[in-house]
Design a binder for these strands. Structure first.
Lengths: 162, 162
DNA sequence: GTCTCAGAGTTGAAAGTTCAACTAATCAGA
DNA sequence: TCTGATTAGTTGAACTTTCAACTCTGAGAC
């Protein structure tokens, strides 16, 4: 990873990279704030609800949540604990593997998601999807997929590092 | 912001958006970890050093740092305090405005930056710039610039919210 | 001059994240 | 079937970020 001469970025690359950092923090912070103010959930919590809502029985193993969001297991434990306290999720022993824990979405969680989804999608459109031409947006998607592929390929067991 | 019917994202938009979330957290976490392991600084700290290195006298007002990074003033205060304790930055009373504080890069800070820059740029290339065709990368840059523009225009005094 | 308001930065506590150590269950192999 | 290595998840402490309250300086009105 750290070899020989440094190949510096040219001016364009530099600018694009900085645009990415600033734009993405601005975007994420805004969406997070909108969700918190309107519904009292963070974006991470919202994302967990989305994933649960898409799963059979609105249920997911802790590890599945962690892997799909690229969060550490510890982080998911803490987040789910808070959400459980708030009544949005219930923990159950996983059937089969006695080490495992299932996170199950409660009716309250579902209700919250239904309300929050509108806020979130509106924000994503207004601040992201609708501010650029479709072709550029697709290109951005290809870049970010390539980023994920590269990083996951380079680190087959990415969890170990976290 | 929250009006009438929800215009949901279509499948492509959904995928691109999720690619963005996962890819960017993966990318930022990786670059942050690389910097921490090799040089003991976070990416936020590194970015502050970069900005100082580009300023006349390697000096910047606290507020300038905060604004250019889209961080809250409080966050910059805390981060700079840690960096000052580590000897990378020195605080000085700003000339002219007695309310102001200048953050000045120390020789130790400069030395660290020189060492860390190689690691960082190599990582940015390997995990980001070089994983996608230039045209896609440029399109990504346009999208992120549009995001920033939209958000900054919508919130003339963005700091007030933070 | 002084009163009020705005701006720059700090502070400390609360909330969230990371890190390393831990328990308990499963698996693979002798 | 016993043993050692893995895997799932949790825990608590350290660290980072956020939030609201605060101090001090500067500026404009009168």
């Amino acid at each position: 990873m750290t070899g020989s001469e440094t190949r510096w970025l040219d001016a364009d690359q530099q600018q694009n990279w900085r645009a990415f950092i600033v734009g993405s923090t601005l975007l994420m912070d805004t969406l997070d704030r909108e969700l918190r103010q309107a519904h009292g959930v963070s974006m991470a919590e919202y994302e967990i609800l989305v994933r649960l809502s898409e799963s059979p029985d609105r249920t997911l193993r802790m590890a599945e949540i962690a892997d799909s969001m690229q969060h550490s297991r510890s982080r998911v434990t803490h987040t789910v604990s808070r959400m459980e306290k708030a009544g949005l999720i219930r923990r159950e022993a996983a059937s089969g593997d006695k080490r495992g824990v299932d996170a199950v979405m409660t009716p309250e969680g579902w209700a919250l998601l239904e309300a929050a989804a509108h806020t979130h999608v509106t924000g994503v459109r207004e601040h992201f999807v609708d501010v650029a031409p479709r072709a550029d947006f697709d290109a951005m998607g290809r870049v970010m997929n390539a980023v994920s592929d590269q990083l996951l390929a380079a680190n087959p067991c990415f969890e170990d590092i976290r």
